[in-house]
């Protein structure tokens, strides 16, 4: 062994006593771990937030109530820490929700955009509209497999003229899980109401996605889930893995936090949807809805 090698060994050995004691480091690791877990929870909450947005923009309401709840009960401070810290966003907000049969992350199988719904939150934050897009558009269905959510979003933007702040892609398993987590939903079609659970929601989701979103949102708001952190957490776990968000999530959450209350209106596309798209672009859906009561799903 050369002299330099010996000196190296000796130098390493000499400095062994500089090694920090394990006890304090162990404590620091535990503290850092708790922080890391909290960060992860916030990320998952964002996923769940997306799940609820897709459930007809109930999220804004939910966030507001979490925020109010947090001032009384410190137990929900993790959830509330997202909302109020975001700057308020002025103007209307559009989010595209893509429901897909297959998991996007799966290597095999072509994910199809089976359900495409625009969520439009009005500038005054009094209403959120779920606008179903005609799913018969086979070219739209295939965009998801060919170019992912970005391609679907740009295609919808191209034919509607609407710019989306964010896109939420949700697989049907997440829809099923969320439906199960809220103990089923009631979907009404032409005055006939139907109870749906996790196993029966999928076919209706294919034919009437905007009604399912509306029913989910209504359920989440009326049964008090939005005010109960434990049930929110359950919803988070249910939707978490099947939801992906693209785009400006921060803006979305920021806008959500400014909402005090919102009515959820589900709208179906008429045969000639140009007026409807124009109303979305100009934030004039309130007038459009008054003029086209037949296309409002109640």
């Amino acid at each position: 062994m050369s002299r330099i090698e010996e000196e190296l060994r000796a130098a390493f050995e000499r400095h062994e006593d500089q090694t920090p004691a394990t006890g304090p480091v162990r404590d620091k690791i535990n503290i850092a771990w708790v922080r890391a877990k909290r960060r992860r929870l916030v990320l998952r909450t964002t996923g769940a937030a997306a799940a609820v947005v897709l459930a007809g923009a109930a999220l804004p309401v939910a966030f507001q109530q979490w925020h109010q709840g947090a001032q009384q009960a410190p137990a929900v401070n993790v959830l509330s820490s997202i909302g109020p810290s975001q700057p308020a966003v002025a103007g209307p907000l559009d989010v595209l929700v893509i429901g897909s049969e297959n998991r996007l992350t799966a290597a095999s199988g072509d994910p199809h955009a089976d359900t495409v719904v625009m969520i439009h939150i009005s500038a005054d934050r009094s209403r959120a509209y779920a606008v179903g897009l005609p799913r018969a558009e086979s070219s739209l269905r295939n965009t998801l497999a060919r170019g992912g959510p970005e391609r679907t979003t740009s295609m919808v933007s191209a034919f509607t003229g609407v710019e989306f702040a964010a896109t939420a892609t949700v697989d049907y398993r997440a829809f099923r899980a969320i439906t199960g987590a809220v103990n089923g939903i009631e979907v009404c079609r032409s005055k006939q109401c139907e109870q749906l659970d996790a196993d029966t929601v999928t076919p209706v989701l294919r034919t009437d996605p905007e009604r399912v979103l509306q029913a989910l949102a209504t359920r989440v708001i009326t049964d008090g889930t939005v005010t109960d952190p434990a049930r929110i957490a359950k919803l988070v776990r249910a939707g978490g893995n099947g939801v992906t968000m693209d785009g400006d999530t921060q803006t979305l959450l920021g806008a959500a936090a400014t909402l005090a209350d919102a009515e959820i209106v589900a709208v179906s596309s008429p045969k000639d949807p140009e007026d409807l798209y124009a109303a979305v672009r100009s934030d004039g859906l309130a007038d459009w809805v008054l003029a086209n009561p037949d296309h409002v799903l109640r």
Binding site: E16, Q18, P20, A36
Partner: peptide, 30 residues
């Protein structure tokens, strides 16, 4: 943990950096 701390001390040449390096790694490990 103690073996990792010794190794990190040799790598970084300073106990503070070694602590930070081990802490960051162990959070990832968890």
């Amino acid at each position: 943990l103690s073996a990792l701390l010794r190794y990190a001390t040799m790598l970084t040449g300073d106990p503070h950096s070694a602590e930070d390096l081990v802490q960051e790694t162990m959070v990832r490990v968890q």
